[in-house]
């Protein structure tokens, strides 16, 4: 203490104290205000919905219709809920780049606020699945990896592959990889059933089980490749390719060398 107090008259002491004080106040305020941020007033809510409607009219209505009622090329969005919008727009699937097969994951076009506004607008049209809050997504605490693995193999692996690497569906459609997807988006995909995916409602897979699935996916994602290069975790096809090219290739190279006559 004495060592610090020696600097109390230092010329940098006052500005430093000021910075600490500001940080303290700002920090306290942000913590305090964070608890109240979810409680949105009716006015704020209607502003957000109006904002969302404006974005919708510009970016989405040409396919989904001016009132999100849907036209021949795109479905109605009435009743799909905020979760659906958050998933489709938040993962960059919507707006679609190409309508030939299915919406693909890409860099999102809208930022988080715009997605929230769009979601609020679509949710205001009719009730539907809501975006799961952070308190619902505590998979680290509430999930079980082993149970999640069982559930994943029972319900998801037939399309998304045993290690969640994705797989082919008919006519060029596909089940995408689930690696590197936000827990929120995985949850929303199960609740809303985007593209060719079925809906896994809370009766089929309970919210706790959904968290277990997310926990298993995250564990598979973080798992190091225990046996060496993973070869894509797609099964024996890449293994066979490597056995022929690198394995037999090297051996034939050696055989040629062995049979070369000494010069």
């Amino acid at each position: 203490m004495k060592r610090i107090s020696r600097f109390r008259r230092h010329k940098a002491a006052a500005p430093l104290l000021l910075i600490f004080a500001l940080l303290g106040i700002g920090g306290t305020f942000s913590v305090a205000s964070a608890t109240t941020a979810n409680e949105m007033s009716a006015v704020e809510r209607s502003t957000l919905i109006e904002e969302g409607r404006q974005i919708f009219l510009k970016g989405c209505s040409s396919c989904h219709g001016l009132n999100a009622e849907g036209v021949s090329v795109a479905p109605s969005l009435i009743g799909v809920g905020a979760a659906s919008v958050d998933f489709q727009v938040g993962t960059g699937r919507m707006p679609m780049a190409d309508m030939s097969t299915q919406a693909m994951r890409k860099a999102p076009v809208y930022n988080d606020e715009e997605v929230a506004a769009l979601a609020a607008y679509v949710a205001s049209l009719a009730p539907g699945p809501e975006i799961p809050g952070m308190e619902l997504l505590n998979f680290e605490r509430d999930g079980s990896t082993a149970e999640g693995g069982e559930l994943f193999r029972n319900n998801c692996a037939m399309c998304h592959n045993f290690a969640g690497q994705g797989g082919a569906l008919t006519q060029g459609k596909y089940a995408p990889t689930v690696m590197g997807v936000l827990p929120k988006h995985i949850y929303e995909a199960m609740v809303t059933g985007p593209q060719a995916m079925p809906v896994f409602n809370d009766k089929t897979i309970t919210p706790e089980e959904k968290l277990s699935i997310i926990k298993w996916i995250k564990s598979a994602e973080a798992e190091p490749n225990l046996g060496g290069a993973s070869l894509g975790r797609v099964g024996p096809v890449t293994e066979g390719l490597l056995a022929w090219t690198l394995g037999l290739g090297l051996l034939i190279g050696v055989a040629v060398w062995l049979a070369t006559k000494a010069k």
Binding site: N154, N161, G167, G228, L231, R233, G235, P236, L242, W244
Partner: peptide
Amino acid sequence: LAAVASINPIWLYGPYTPAQISAGSQPDW
């Protein structure tokens, strides 16, 4: 090859039950 490249990572597949199947189930080449 065995030291640098994974082959048949059985722990990722999980145990067999007739009710389950994985996309991309293939035999060896």
